[in-house]
């Protein structure tokens, strides 16, 4: 059975490239731009990987990561964001259970390494 991935990125270019990268690795992938595009079924899935931004309307970055971990079942979580300052990165990683943190611009090869 194919692995599953969920990508949540507001930036359309980044979203599309990440989606193609994931599809090229034989994953089943759901790519969305905003949180309100998530449906009930997504919450029942156990995603192999979630790749997400942390900047979304109505929820702070730390709260978002916490909620994501609580509500959507997954095996690993990668954060890719333009707000990737050292301080932000440290705070997100301190929360635990975040497999990787990439600040834009980033090397896609490193993300692929993490996937494999």
């Amino acid at each position: 059975m194919a692995k599953t991935a969920l990508i949540i990125q507001q930036d359309l270019i980044l979203l599309q490239v990440l989606e193609r990268m994931i599809l090229a690795r034989q994953y089943r992938c759901k790519a969305i731009r905003a949180l309100d595009q998530l449906d009930i079924e997504d919450q029942d899935q156990n995603f192999d990987i979630i790749i997400s931004d942390i900047l979304f309307d109505g929820i702070g970055p730390l709260d978002y990561v916490y909620q994501l971990k609580e509500i959507i079942r997954h095996k690993s979580l990668l954060i890719i964001t333009s707000m990737g300052q050292k301080k932000v990165r440290q705070e997100i990683l301190e929360m635990g259970q975040v497999s990787g943190f990439f600040s834009v611009p980033f090397n896609f090869d490193h993300v692929e390494e993490m996937l494999s």
Binding site: I13, V17, P105, F106, N107
Partner: peptide, 15 residues
Amino acid sequence: DLMIRAQRTMLGANH
């Protein structure tokens, strides 16, 4: 503008 935006997102081989 889109080209610049795309290029500024990536490093490495994709860049």
